[in-house]
């Protein structure tokens, strides 16, 4: 039995009094896979993510983590094995100091204060934020906040990492560091993003959402090279797969250095 498998089966959900939501979503993500979830604004990415750890209950269909579907009863176990990194780190860092914040999860899991602290320090070291331990969250830069937010989740040693736009609002260097950091994780990863270049770096597989439905599910590079599919789903190729508008070179014809 593995907790690392995430499976959605004909998942439907619509927000009350609207027709937006998600329809008939099915996929299966196996151990160690890294999957990008892409789609235009309002395509249903966040709605889908909110189903994966039980914030939203599907109208029909089901989501399973490991071998069991998510129910009210096993919600706690599910949330323990699925770590979610929010889009706005300010929402995620609510405790007085970084250490308190990273310890929050482990303490809730019932760890003794000492081992919770160890788990927290270890997680902070992992994301390169060990020096921030005593700082209050509002005194961190955007990149630091993001790293600490990831540490808060890592400290609970989840099996699956879910991230909502991890590279948003980061400067290019911080984004580079984040990508390197995420590459080093062996977890099953599901990353909702508009940053398709990052998706190329991190995810071998991509799921495309358009108006609440899956329009494609397959190898990242295949999907991004399919112009009609990209157009129909309201997406634009990642920058590095477009021709250079300044030197006029077509990347497909250019010889690799």
């Amino acid at each position: 039995m593995s907790h690392h498998i995430v499976k959605a089966d004909t998942l439907c959900y619509s927000y009350p009094a609207t027709d937006c939501g998600i329809h008939n979503i099915s996929f299966s993500i196996t151990h160690g896979e890294s999957v990008a979830l892409v789609g235009e604004n309002g395509a249903g990415k966040s709605t889908l993510l909110h189903h994966l750890n039980g914030f939203l209950q599907p109208d029909s269909g089901s989501v399973s983590i490991g071998d069991y579907p998510i129910t009210q009863k096993n919600l706690k176990a599910v949330r323990r094995s699925v770590g979610m990194v929010f889009q706005d780190p300010d929402d995620q860092l609510f405790m007085p100091t970084v250490l308190d914040d990273v310890c929050f999860g482990p303490l809730n899991l019932g760890l003794a204060p000492d081992s919770a602290k160890n788990a927290a320090l270890h997680a902070l070291e992992r994301v390169g934020a060990a020096h921030l331990v005593d700082r209050p969250p509002y005194r961190l830069s955007g990149g630091e906040k993001r790293s600490v937010a990831i540490a808060t989740v890592l400290a609970m040693s989840p099996d699956v990492l879910i991230m909502d736009e991890p590279s948003s609002n980061l400067d290019p260097r911080a984004r580079q560091r984040l990508i390197k950091l995420l590459m080093s994780f062996k977890h099953t990863k599901i990353i909702a993003t508009h940053d398709l270049d990052m998706a190329v770096d991190l995810c071998e597989r991509t799921i495309v959402l358009h108006k609440g439905k899956i329009t494609a599910d397959g190898a990242t590079l295949d999907i991004f090279q399919n112009d009609t599919l990209m157009n129909e789903s309201g997406l634009i190729k990642p920058l590095r797969m477009q021709g250079c508008s300044i030197c006029g070179q077509d990347p497909e014809r250019a010889e690799s250095p």
Partner: peptide, 8 residues
């Protein structure tokens, strides 16, 4: 949500 997510 973020708190629930971490076992609050």
């Amino acid at each position: 949500l973020a708190m629930l997510c971490r076992g609050f």
